[in-house]
Design a protein around this nucleic acid. Sequence first.
DNA 1: AAGGAAATCAACCGCTGCCCA
DNA 2: GTGGGCAGCGGTTGATTTCCT
Length: 253
Amino acid sequence: MENKRVKSQPKKNLWKPEEDTILRNYVETHGEGNWATVSQQSGLMRGGKSCRLRWKNYLRPNIKRGGMSQEEEDLIIRMHKLLGNRWSLIAGRLPGRTDNEVKNYWNTHLNKSCPRGKRKPIHSDEHQNTTITEENSITNRNNKVRRLSNPPIITTETQEISTPDQRLVLEETRKEEGSSFIADPWTILGDTEISFNCDIESPIMPVNNNAKFVLDDEPFIAYMDSFLLFEAFGCTAGEDGYAEVGAMQSIIP
DNA sequence: AAGGAAATCAACCGCTGCCCA
DNA sequence: GTGGGCAGCGGTTGATTTCCT
C-alpha cells in the first residue's frame, strides 16, 4: 500500500523532493515574499500561490509534523468554540502548526457529531480520554464534563463571561505569552458565571482603570491577543480611547 | 486476496483585503 | 478615488491509505 503513490503517476501536482529543494534554496537565498516571481526566477513550474502554500505548510523552519498532542487538541477545541473557523488565528496559538493542518485536523478528528469509522484514530488513547460527549460539552481525562456554552449574563458594571472555557482560553494566553494581569479582572460568581471587567490596558489601547491587562512579551502575539480579546468581547475604542463594551450576545450563540 | 467504503490530508480554488502607483 | 497586483484565508477537491467484509 505504501508504494501506491510511487507506482501510480499522481494526477494532482504533488510536490517532488527536488522541487522542495529548489524552493527551499530559493527562499533561504532571497527570503519570503514575492511569490509571484518565485516560479520564474527559481525555474519551478509552479504558481506563486502553490509555492507560498508549500513553503508555509511544509518547508518553513519549525514546522511541527505528526499527531496533535492532547494539549493542542484541547486548545483547538476551545479556540474554535471561541473564534469559529478562523484557522489562521487558531493556528497562531499552536507553535509549529499551520492553518491548513489545524483545519484538516478539525474536519477529520474533531468535527464529528457521531464519531465512528473503521480506522483507528491516530491517537486512540487520547481520543479515549477526550471526547465530545454532546454539542456543548467536553469530557476530559478526568471524566469531568466542561460545559462550553451557557447563556450570557450581562450586568451593568461588568461583562459576564458566559463560559468557563472562554476564561481558560484567555488565561492560557496569559500564561503562554508571559503576559500578566496587574489585577485579575476575573470574578467567579458561581459555578459557571464568571465576571470580567472589560477595562483593559493593552499596548494598543491604553486605559487607566482598575483592572489592567498588560502584555509585555512578544509584541506581535500580544497585539494579536489584544485584538482577539477585544474582538471576542465586543470591545471597541471610545472617543476618549477607553475600551467600551459591546453586546456580548453578538458573539455567543 | 480482492474489492469497496471510509478516513486522511496535500493541494487547489475562489474570494477578500491591503498596498501602491 | 480607483484599478491592478499580490498575499492570505477558508472552503473544497481528489488521490492515497487504511480498514472491513
